[in-house]
C-alpha cells in the first residue's frame, strides 16, 4: 500500500487538527452557557455539606401525641393539607393485655394515626381495662445510610447528601414512584402539586441556616432531639442523650442503617 503526501492532503489534515484544538475553548464556553440556563441560585452562603453530620433522636417516653410537629411540618414545607401526605406523622400504639386462657405475655397490637395526629387522638375504641400499654411514636424519614429509596431511583434524583440528609432533586425527579415503594418505612409520598416524589428533607433550608428542623423547634416536650455530630456544642444534648439512654433503630433487620434513633421503643414498633 503506497502513500502519497500531496500538498492538499497535508494542509487539510493540519487545518483539521488546528480547528479541532480551537473548538475546545469554544465548546467550553457553549457548555457554560448551556449550564447557566439550567442552574438556579439563592442558597445560603457558607454552608459546607461535608462539614456536618446530622442526627435525630426520638424519645418515645416524651411524646404526648399533640400533633404540633406534624402540623408544623406541613406549614414549613408546604405539604398538601389533606391526609395521606405527610413528611412526619404520629402513630398511636395500643398493646392489649393477653387474652385470658392463653400463655402469651402481650396481646394484640393496634396502630392508628388519624390525619397523622394533627387533629389529636380521640379516645381509643379499646376499653381501658383491656389496654396493657399505649404510647405515641413520631415517624419521619429515617435518614438511612444504606437507603433503599436512593438505590431504587433510576435517574439519580434522590441521594444521600454528605451531611446525612437524604434529599430529592426536584428538577431531576421524573415521578416514577419507585422510591415511594422502596421505602420500608413509608416515609415518601407523591406530591400532587409538583408531580414529584417528596419526603422529609430534614428541613434542609433551616438546618443550613443554623435553625432546627420545624418539628424539633415546635415539639413542646423535647421528644425530638437534633444535633450535629461533627460540630458538637458544649454539653451537647444529643451526645448526652445517646450516652444516657438505650437507643435503637426501626427495622434494623433490613440493614438500612437509619440515622434516626429511637429511645424507649417497644418490640411492637415497626
Amino acid at each position: 500500500m503506497s502513500k502519497s503526501f500531496s500538498r492538499r492532503g497535508v494542509l487539510g489534515s493540519l487545518g483539521g487538527i488546528v480547528g479541532g484544538l480551537l473548538s475546545l475553548p469554544v465548546a467550553r464556553h457553549v457548555k457554560a452557557a448551556v449550564q447557566r440556563v439550567f442552574a438556579s441560585a439563592g442558597a445560603p452562603e457558607g454552608y459546607d455539606a461535608t462539614k456536618h453530620w446530622w442526627l435525630m433522636v426520638i424519645d418515645i417516653d416524651r411524646c404526648i401525641g399533640c400533633g404540633l410537629c406534624a402540623e408544623a411540618c406541613k406549614n414549613e414545607n408546604h405539604v398538601p393539607k389533606v391526609p395521606t401526605y405527610f413528611r412526619t406523622w404520629i402513630e398511636r400504639y395500643i398493646i392489649k393485655k393477653p387474652r385470658p386462657g392463653t400463655t402469651e405475655t402481650r396481646g394484640e397490637t393496634l396502630v392508628d394515626s388519624p390525619n397523622g395526629g394533627i387533629d389529636g387522638f380521640p379516645p381509643s375504641l379499646v376499653p381501658r381495662e383491656e389496654i396493657l400499654k399505649s404510647f405515641f411514636v413520631p415517624k419521619l424519614c429515617n435518614l438511612c445510610h444504606q437507603s433503599p429509596c436512593t438505590q431504587a431511583c433510576p435517574v439519580g434524583a434522590t441521594f444521600d447528601a454528605p451531611d446525612g440528609a437524604v434529599l430529592i432533586d426536584p428538577n431531576y425527579c421524573i415521578g416514577c414512584g419507585f422510591c415511594i415503594q422502596a421505602c420500608p418505612y413509608g416515609c415518601r409520598y407523591f406530591n400532587p402539586e409538583t408531580k414529584t416524589a417528596d419526603k422529609c428533607s430534614l428541613c434542609y433550608h433551616r438546618i443550613t441556616r443554623g435553625l432546627k428542623p420545624a418539628c424539633v423547634e415546635i415539639c413542646p416536650t423535647g421528644a425530638r432531639i437534633f444535633g450535629d455530630l461533627k460540630n458538637p456544642v458544649p454539653d451537647d444534648p444529643i451526645l448526652r442523650f445517646v450516652r444516657d439512654k438505650k437507643v435503637q433503630t426501626l427495622k434494623p433487620h433490613l440493614g438500612t442503617e437509619p440515622r434516626v434513633l429511637y429511645a424507649g421503643m417497644d418490640k411492637e414498633v415497626r
Partner: peptide
Amino acid sequence: YRGAALEEIASRTPVY
C-alpha cells in the same frame, strides 16, 4: 447526583 441540588433545596425561605 447533581451537587447544586443541595443549594437549591437549601434556598427555600424558613416559615418558622
